[in-house]
Nucleic acid binder design. Structure first.
Length: 479
DNA sequence: GTAGGGTTAG
């Protein structure tokens, strides 16, 4: 399937596609996706409910009754109950009721239920299709998301500006550029390229697939750019290492009279963090303050990170202390901030405070803590955290945690322990881990161990050119 | 009678 997929993409471009009929668009989608729709169970719970308990049902024929009942459903069992009731009363023939059921199932991530209903529906409209496409995307079942979209195109219906952004986003989330380009062709085919929702989604998709030139081209060609489109493009520039351009775009956006909201500000703050320029950080902060944006968790956390990366851990702490609501990301950001400023003690002091406020650490919190220990030479503390993360908090050590430990032990000159740790670990080793060991060898002039590490690295990934590069680089530097 | 977008930590 994948071979075929690539061949198709290489053969076609926009121009050739323009001359294809809509039905060939369908067969194209057809050849690329393989549907794996869960078929209806023989023991459908809804049928069972309908068979065993219809004496308890009311026999309302008012669609509003079912819609209201569905809105009040708290769990899947209740939804199935209403579904069964509607089935017994023949109300599933009513598109409004059936659509609402689909939607509620999708909201509860019950895509199996939703699909068996969808499959049985004689009449479907654009709403029904987009609920299914979006529902599968929501639970991360992209195969079926694309599969349903394929069926939609094949049914001869014209895809609308609700469904297309959903599949485009699915391409973004799976970083599936080939599929993304294909759907872009379909957008052209149906003449929908000027829809804001669709083009913003396309810009975002190209940006996340790191094809920034395509994203930018599309962006520049757009006649109408709304706030979301601007935000996407500003974020894309920052993400791809051109935070200066983010800043330029933010100015241009303002000049064109588009007023930023909180999400846009988070994106700009983020770009500023990547830029690492304190002057810009103060400007953004001032803007946020003047426009009266409240410091919610996301904006606040972004600002903590921004100030830390622009060099002022104190300003970061000031924002941190002013924030009313903090989550695990906020705490981790502040811990990391102290970490890369070499203030290990301050980082560690935050840990009990975090626990007292009722927030549990996750794997990134521990990466930040271990990183802080290694950059402040707090060896014993690091070892303690490394053990306790699994024992007390059920957070499994992964390769990043091991890398911090190798770095920590390596810097302290305890290279044998670092090597033992690597040899005993059961998780998969990566480039960064060997880099940490080789780095430690370089500091301490341990050429034999460096050679051993380089050899292991090459044995592990003989086919990877970067492995050889890293090994050579560190070996040369050791000598 | 109804659905959809962009945002935070290593």
């Amino acid at each position: 399937m994948f071979k075929f997929k690539h061949q198709i993409i290489f053969v076609l471009n926009h121009e050739t596609f323009r001359f294809l009929s809509a039905s060939s668009a369908a067969s194209m989608v057809d050849s690329i996706t393989q549907t794996q729709i869960p078929r209806q169970n023989l023991s459908n719970p809804v049928t069972q409910i309908a068979e065993t308990s219809n004496s308890h049902f009311s026999y309302s024929l008012d669609p509003k009754y079912y819609i209201y009942s569905l809105l009040n459903c708290k769990n899947l069992a209740q939804i199935r109950q209403v579904h069964a009731q509607a089935a017994v009363n023949g109300m599933l023939q009513n598109l409004i009721v059936a659509n609402k059921l689909l939607y509620i199932y999708a909201q509860h991530k019950a895509l199996g239920d939703a699909y068996s209903l969808f499959d049985a529906m004689r009449e479907r409209d654009a709403y029904s299709w987009s609920v299914m496409v979006g529902g599968f995307a929501k639970v991360g079942d992209y195969m079926n998301c694309f599969g349903i979209f394929r069926e939609y195109i094949r049914s001869g219906e014209r895809p609308d500006n609700y469904t297309l952004p959903l599949v485009i986003r699915a391409c973004r989330d799976t970083v599936d550029l080939q599929m993304g380009r294909l759907i872009h062709h379909i957008v052209y085919k149906f003449g929908l390229q000027s829809d804001t929702f669709i083009s913003a989604a396309l810009v975002d998709m190209y940006a996340k697939c790191r094809v920034v030139e395509d994203a930018r081209q599309l962006f520049d060609k757009m006649l109408m750019r709304d706030l979301v489109t601007w935000t996407v493009m500003i974020g894309a520039c920052a993400e791809c290492g051109n935070a200066n351009e983010s800043w330029v775009l933010f100015d241009r956006m303002g000049a064109e009279g588009v007023v930023p909201d909180k999400v846009a500000m988070v994106t700009v703050v983020n770009a500023c963090a990547k830029l690492g320029a304190m002057h810009k950080a103060r400007l953004v902060h001032d803007y946020i303050w003047r426009k009266n944006f409240s410091l919610d968790v996301i904006l606040g956390t972004a600002m903590v990170d921004m100030y830390a990366k622009c060099g002022s851990v104190d300003s970061a702490r000031e924002i941190f202390d002013r924030m009313k609501e903090k989550n695990v990301i906020t705490w981790s950001a502040m811990i990391a901030a102290y970490g890369y400023h070499g203030q290990g003690r301050e980082a560690l002091d935050l840990f009990p405070m975090m626990l007292r406020s009722g927030i549990l650490p996750n794997r990134i919190t521990f990466v930040s803590l271990l990183y802080a220990c290694s950059h402040a030479g707090l060896v014993e503390e690091g070892l303690r955290f490394f053990d306790l993360m699994w024992e007390d908090y059920s957070v499994r050590q992964d390769v990043k945690h091991y890398t911090c430990m190798v770095d920590l032990l390596g810097r302290a000159g305890r290279l044998d322990e670092a090597l033992n740790l690597i040899e005993d670990m059961s998780v998969e080793k990566d480039e960064g881990l060997w880099g940490a060991l080789l780095g430690a060898c370089r500091i301490h002039g341990q050429i034999e161990l460096a050679e051993k590490a380089a050899k292991s690295l090459l044995e592990l990934q003989p086919q990877e050119p970067w492995a050889l590069c890293i090994a050579i680089k560190y070996l040369c530097e050791s000598r």
